[in-house]
Design a protein around this nucleic acid. Structure first.
Lengths: 193, 193
DNA sequence: CAAACCCCTTGATTTAAATCAAGGGGTTTT
DNA sequence: AAAACCCCTTGATTTAAATCAAGGGGTTTG
């Protein structure tokens, strides 16, 4: 139920069995069916979600109803609309499941209580958000200075297994391309040009 | 010398005069002249820099010697090659001053000691990196789903005063455009089209 | 089992932005 | 004070990617 969560936690901050028991009280398991929403835009985001099993995505929808995927959430990853979570303003992102999934949710009050009472949780959170920041910085660097093909290559190098679990059109959206362009790039790359 | 640093610190985490004195021991003031490097790619980044006064930029250089600006650093902001700082691998970014500047540097050892001994410093760091993450997430959302004009508008809305302190070609680089394109957008926007 | 849906690819055309070139004007350096 | 440099703009052309359209094939639903 929380196996992977504590495995990842211990990678970042080793904790005792006692601390683990303490933290468990703040965690809420949740299952999602494929295509089921975890968060819809306009609602306040009231949790941080850790993915024990499955795959999620976070995306915004623009005025042409185009979905822009900003984040995937696979096993071991954390996903949220963090701005909404922290400020309690309405979310701008939607989050739903790409396959049946099992999550560990941390509510706002649990989050704040643990920050106050469990120093290793604050360290875990700082390291988590630092890792997310670095991933995003790297991503911006790539997006700003790369061709479409380079973007796809970079994505595949970074996440070799995601392509098998996520539709091509979602990968295209995530890296800022159209599905047709991605299709042409894939053809070109596979024919060795 | 550390006035703005503690002002920003207290905004995030109020600290006592005693804690402030304690933290002061870990801080190192530094002045940079305009165009002077703080960091060059290939060197390990050994500090986190807080900008008391002035303006800096962080950028990478691609194989065509094109500079891609990933971050500006104005008063009140923190700037570093964080990946290099944390992993001690060679930096991929350069950081230099756009005007004469005064900084507060935090070395790796100071950073780690304060994390261990001053809980409010860990909170300050977590809140800092969380803010940076949210800014970057918002930026990725904009870059992926906007036209060139929308990108510039968004930049100007977010940072109305930066345009007066930073050359246009650097703003163009930061938002992923060429100077010529930015110039045409500015002309179009100012003529009310 | 058929209809409906979804994913992906391909071709043709359009378009937003890049690239290349040139020049005006202000600032900095010698 | 002049040369050198830098910033910015504009025009012309090219190009990478988007858009539009169409269709094949697999999966899901009724």
């Amino acid at each position: 139920m929380y196996e992977l969560f504590f495995e990842e936690f211990n990678k970042k901050v080793p904790i005792t069995a006692e601390e683990q028991e303490q933290i468990k009280h703040y965690l809420t398991p949740k299952k999602l069916r494929r295509k089921q929403y975890l968060l819809q835009e306009g609602d306040v985001c009231k949790f941080i979600a850790f993915v024990e099993k499955g795959a999620l995505r976070a995306y915004s929808v623009d005025e042409n109803f185009t979905e822009n995927i900003i984040q995937f959430g696979l096993e071991g990853w954390t996903i949220s609309d963090l701005y909404s979570f922290l400020t309690e303003e309405p979310a701008v992102y939607n989050i739903d499941a790409l396959e049946d999934s099992e999550l560990v949710l941390i509510s706002k009050s649990a989050h704040e209580e643990m920050l106050q009472t469990i120093p290793k949780y604050e360290t875990y959170t700082r390291l988590n958000i630092t890792g997310a920041y670095l991933a995003m910085q790297r991503r911006i660097t790539t997006i700003i200075s790369s061709t479409a093909e380079e973007r796809y290559q970079d994505f595949i190098n970074l996440y070799p297994h995601i392509a098998q679990r996520v539709p091509q059109h979602m990968i295209a959206s995530y890296i800022g391309l159209t599905p047709e362009t991605l299709s042409r790039i894939r053809k070109k790359l596979s024919s060795g040009k």
